[in-house]
Design a protein around this nucleic acid. Structure first.
Length: 291
DNA sequence: CACTTGACCTGTCCGC
DNA sequence: TGCGGACAGGTCAAGT
C-alpha cells in the first residue's frame, strides 16, 4: 500500500524530524523485521546520529554518521512513526491520527534517541523489513540494480516511459506499470488512477498502446503522483506518515476503491475486476476494452 | 527468456 | 455468535 507518494511523505516527515538525533538503543521483536546481528546493531547503529533521510523507489534510506544506513521497505502495512518527548506520556497523536499509544502489538522495532524520543517501525503483516547496511553497499543491492527510473525525476520523459514499458510489450499495461524494473514506485492505487486518467483499459497489451496514449499516460501518472504527495499520500487501512497521521489522496481518487460510484468524468458506474492478480478499478465508458 | 501465479503474513469482513 | 474462507497487494521465488 505504501507506494511512491506514501513513502515520499514519510521521508519528508522523517527528514524534518530525525537529522542530528543520536540513537541510544534499538530493540527488535523478530529477526524477520530486522535481521541484522545484534553485534552489528550495537556497533553501527547505537551511538550513531542520523545524517539525512532519502528515498529510492518505495525504499527509505536513513543515512547514519557511522557510514551505515537503515534501509527500510514498508511493503503493505509498514509504518515508521516518530514520537517526540512532548507526546511521550500524552494521549498520543491528535486529530487525524491512526495510531494509538506506541509501542503497540504491531511494533516490530523500536529506536530510542538521546533526548528520549522514539522511532517505531510498526508492521501488522510482517512483510516489511529494516536492514542495517554500509551506505556504500546500498546501490549494490539486487533491488537497486534492477529498479527502474524515478517517474518524477526531471529527466524522465514520456518517451522514456514508452521505451521502458515496451520492455514488457507482450503483457498487459497494468502488470507493466506494477513492474518495478520498468518504472519505480508505482503500485495498485496509482496504476489504476493513471490508467483512468489516460483512458486506457488495464488489460490493454502494451504493444497495442498508441503514441498519444503513452503521452497521456505519462501526464496522468506524473499528475496523480504529484497530487498524492501534496495530499500526504493515500490512507486506505494502515498507512500513516511519520507523525502517525493519515493521507487524504483517496478523497480525490477517481476510481480506486470507488466501485459502484459514478465516474467523475462521465458518470458511468465504476466497476471492479481482477487484472494482473490485483483488484482493479475502471470506468467502462472512459476505458473501453480494445480489440 | 517472457510472463504468470503463489507464498509470505495478519486483520477484517462476509456468508452460513 | 462463531467459524471458515476470501480478500487486501509489494516483492520475490517458483512454475508454465
Amino acid at each position: 500500500m505504501p507506494e511512491l507518494p506514501e513513502v515520499e511523505t514519510v521521508r519528508l516527515g522523517l527528514q524534518r524530524l530525525l537529522p542530528g538525533r543520536v540513537v541510544t538503543s534499538a530493540v527488535s521483536d523478530t529477526d524477520k523485521s530486522f535481521p541484522n546481528a545484534l553485534s552489528d546493531i550495537q556497533v553501527f547503529l547505537v551511538g550513531a546520529s542520523v545524517v539525512t533521510v532519502a528515498r529510492r523507489a518505495k525504499v527509505l534510506l536513513i543515512e547514519l554518521s557511522s557510514k551505515y544506513s537503515l534501509v527500510v521497505h514498508l511493503k503493505m502495512t509498514g509504518q515508521l512513526v516518530f514520537v517526540g518527548t512532548e507526546e511521550r506520556f500524552g494521549a498520543g497523536h491528535p486529530n487525524d491520527s491512526l495510531v494509538g499509544h506506541l509501542p503497540d502489538r504491531s511494533t516490530r522495532v523500536t529506536l530510542e534517541f538521546a533526548d528520549g524520543s522514539h522511532l517505531y517501525f510498526n508492521d501488522q503483516r510482517k512483510f516489511g523489513w529494516m536492514r542495517l547496511l554500509p551506505t556504500a553497499e546500498v546501490p549494490m543491492l539486487d533491488f537497486f540494480q534492477k529498479v527502474g527510473p524515478e517517474p518524477l525525476s526531471s529527466d524522465f520523459s514520456w518517451r522514456d516511459l514508452q521505451a521502458r514499458l515496451l520492455r514488457r510489450k507482450n503483457t498487459n499495461i497494468k502488470a507493466a506499470l506494477l513492474d518495478q524494473t520498468v518504472v519505480a514506485g508505482i503500485g495498485n492505487i496509482y496504476a489504476d488512477e493513471s490508467l483512468w486518467g489516460a483512458k486506457i483499459h488495464p488489460t490493454t497489451i502494451v504493444r497495442d498502446i498508441t503514441e498519444s496514449q503513452f503521452k497521456a499516460l505519462y501526464e496522468a501518472l506524473t499528475a496523480v503522483l504529484r497530487l498524492s504527495i501534496a495530499k500526504g499520500g493515500s490512507t486506505d487501512k494502515n498507512y500513516v506518515n511519520a507523525e502517525g497521521k493519515r493521507g487524504s489522496y483517496l478523497d480525490f481518487a477517481s476510481v480506486f476503491r470507488r466501485e459502484g460510484l459514478p465516474c467523475p468524468r462521465c458518470g458511468t458506474i465504476i466497476i471492479k475486476s481482477r487484472v494482473a492478480g490485483r483488484g482493479t478499478h475502471t470506468c467502462p465508458h472512459c476505458q473501453p476494452l480494445s480489440k
